[in-house]
Design a protein around this nucleic acid. Sequence first.
DNA 1: TGTCTCCTTTTGCTCAGACATAATCCTATC
DNA 2: GATAGGATTATGTCTGAGCAAAAGGAGACA
Lengths: 231, 231
Amino acid sequence: MTETTRFRDVIDTILNRITKGPWGPGTLLPSEIDLAAEFGCSRSTMNRALRDVTEMGLIERKRKAGTRVRLTPLRAARFEMPLVRADIEKAGAAYRYALIQRDICPAPDWLSAKMNLSPNSPALHLICVHYADDRAFQLEDRWINLTALPLSATQDFTKIGPNEWLIATVPFSEVEVSFLAKSADALTATYLGQAIGEPVFCLERATWWQTSPITFVTLSHGPNHRLTTRY
Amino acid sequence: MTETTRFRDVIDTILNRITKGPWGPGTLLPSEIDLAAEFGCSRSTMNRALRDVTEMGLIERKRKAGTRVRLTPLRAARFEMPLVRADIEKAGAAYRYALIQRDICPAPDWLSAKMNLSPNSPALHLICVHYADDRAFQLEDRWINLTALPLSATQDFTKIGPNEWLIATVPFSEVEVSFLAKSADALTATYLGQAIGEPVFCLERATWWQTSPITFVTLSHGPNHRLTTRY
DNA sequence: TGTCTCCTTTTGCTCAGACATAATCCTATC
DNA sequence: GATAGGATTATGTCTGAGCAAAAGGAGACA
């Protein structure tokens, strides 16, 4: 009698066979139909199980070629990145936002290179701080491509942060996210209340919409910040 | 004529309605059946589309209560964490591994607390370095619960790293991963070739198997390391 | 008023069958 | 032997139907 659901059972068995069982790295699994027969379920169910295992990063599937256990069984983890506001309010703190600096200037070279902008195209440069109970929680250093989003030049960012405005305004399509550790520079140190050179946990996010670059942001966090997930 | 697949079209439309259309945060969507009728597809297809959007983190679903747009539209990102070896070899560098230190001692308090170990239970403590072309790439500081995995005490970790051994030996079930930025301590500085206090990008991973704690590891990376994903 | 039970709605999952599509394999042809 | 094209096969997707499980709501009853 199955306690849990069918496809979850199937997934468990598959995981076991991959990690300890006979299906070592590189193994070509039987076809969906054969597996469905073996497990006594329909192909739909087997398909769903195998799709889920694929998402976990353990197998690769190609039409006609079949299903193969990856040579390097990587595990993929999902990280949720809520709005700063939600993040702060969920922790029970009061959220406050402040615009520190606002500039319109040609995009610097590193930005043009990273986002594939035409050289010297105009950009809106914003620096903001997000506070949790009057403690600085996150420093936001954002560039917005004015060619793609001229509307942002007239937007007043003193009340509503650029992040929330962008989410409400632009549909996302392509996003590149990076996590890294940086030394606090003068600006970061000042606003996050750290010493220069102290480690800062940063998230960089570049966003495109149908190949047109929209925005690039660096989010720097205060000390001891960590991003966690379970699975 | 649909260029792409049906459920992908449905997803796109749903995303559009959420981000710009009439379905603001908190909206209660129509039932699967009604939506399927509106979109001219079967409930299965609609179900898959809605499940996918749920996975993206934009909506929440509950039986009988219905489907609701999340108040805080978080976006989830998937990060792949391959084996160090695979990571290094993919970059075209030669992989080398070294065991620096091996200890058997009672688990320290912070570890017992974090992993929910009984106090002073024996643990195997390993420190290893992973090199890419003779440059130190990653420092691995690992604790293994000897009560759950007594086999590891007799395992020779001078040739094969504990990570690869564990992956091949223990089926994983519950994993907690954190990213954070640390200051390099003496040990890290020595083996990663950095100055003390320099920022280090760290990954912490705790692993359980059926509620029994298996291992806790801190992976510290050299300067300028970053973890990136696109979606 | 409070609580307990039963009913209904909505999502969760499974099934069998079907067609579409990619990619490999094989064969005919030059 | 090389190449082009068709047959084969495994996955990708869709359908319509049905049962299961969760949970809100209504009504009975103390």
